[in-house]
Design a protein around this nucleic acid. Structure first.
Lengths: 217, 217
DNA sequence: GAATGTGAAGGTTTTCACAGCA
DNA sequence: TGCTGTGAAAACCTTCACATTC
């Protein structure tokens, strides 16, 4: 709480997630040679309300021109600064099973500035093998290699059963940001950011929706 | 709005998502031979508050015993009914690139009752090939095969550029629930449930968090 | 005229706090 | 005593509406 006092105001998680959406929309608009975009049009593209778009953007100062809208390129640059994606992040993938190896080849990560620099596994058959031009390293060398390569984020794609053990080592190596694909609640110290990606959740939402005849939207 | 009037009360999206978490926690507790669980303990495991857990569960009637807690197995069963995962859903995967083929082998889907019955691709080299015991079908036969096999949900893992074209065909085939992994906003009729899985979003959140020295939590 | 920026209003979600029950 | 179930309060988030600016 106290730590956030130097921020103008607290920015909600939903706002951050919408910034990701705006960023993607603006990238597209840039390609379509738009110079400006109104909150109305941006809202329409992302299925939001114009007021919401304006409120979100107003957190970071006045950027639009009344009567005209927002300058596409400038706004895109500004959002990338806010999200911290105006740079390249050094990422390591831990686990080269189904999900892990698919994500190593996933171009969107690279595109947004998340550069996978190292890959780890504990399976002797995988260690030393080539994945997208990268050699799979032994997980035993993780601590050293993470430090040597200035890795800042780790993506965990290991079986749930070993995930806590591995995350402890990752934390030990000084990593402060972890994206976890394992279906388990991991424990990390207070100064480490941990996010979980639960791909079943959205399928379960669809299941709920179909079962309960909810109105889509 | 009106359509939801037959529900006791409107259940929020966040509540549904938390039900998924409770379900997973209860599955684990069952394995650990717990007979009952208090809101306090369940909250601790899922990093929520006890009051939140009780409010969520109270939507569906009184299930707990005062002084004791909730019966693990019964509660798990009840939640699975609410989420509609007390049955098997017939799912088709469209697109067998990196992500698609990883998801076909992803055991968690199967475990939660999402059974991938058909796989489609438009690449001639992939059509006819074997993926986890399933033959990849030609996307041209999608409409017929989806109907013949009573497919109820589709997972889209195709390039963004063709996603709208393909989703149109999926909708045409009568599918009412779609999980989209493509990085694009798709348009579907009002009676179709569409959810987007954006795996870059959580990495961007981590990027934001690291860049802004936010307090994790 | 068109569209931003923003206090105030409205709505939703979470937390509190305690009565009620095993 | 321990813990649920739940109205009421608090916190949070979204939308409204309009003054302001280009």
């Amino acid at each position: 709480m106290a730590k956030q006092d130097n921020e103008k105001k607290k920015i909600s998680e939903s706002t951050i997630h919408r910034l990701s959406l705006y960023y993607r929309a603006l990238s597209l608009l840039e390609k379509e040679n738009y110079e400006t975009i109104s909150s109305k049009e941006l809202a329409k593209r992302e299925k939001l309300t114009p007021a919401q778009v304006r409120k979100d953007l107003s957190f970071f100062g006045s950027f639009g021109t009344r009567g005209l809208g927002y300058p596409v390129s400038e706004l895109k640059t500004r959002i990338s600064q806010i999200l911290g994606i105006d740079r390249v992040w050094n990422v390591a993938m831990v686990g080269v099973g189904n999900i892990g190896s698919a994500l190593v080849s996933y171009k969107e990560f690279q595109k947004q500035g998340f550069s996978i620099k190292l890959i780890f596994d504990n399976d002797q058959r995988k260690i030393g093998s080539n994945h997208k031009g990268m050699i799979v390293s032994d997980i035993k060398e993780m601590s050293t290699l993470l430090r040597e390569n200035n890795i800042e984020m780790v993506i965990l794609a290991v079986p749930a059963i070993v995930a806590q053990y591995i995350v402890d080592e990752v934390v030990e190596a000084g990593i402060k940001a972890i994206l976890n694909f394992a279906q388990i609640n991991l424990v990390v110290p207070d100064d480490v950011f941990l996010r979980n990606e639960n791909m079943s959740m959205e399928l379960e939402y669809l299941s709920f929706a179909l079962s309960n005849q909810y109105t889509p939207g």
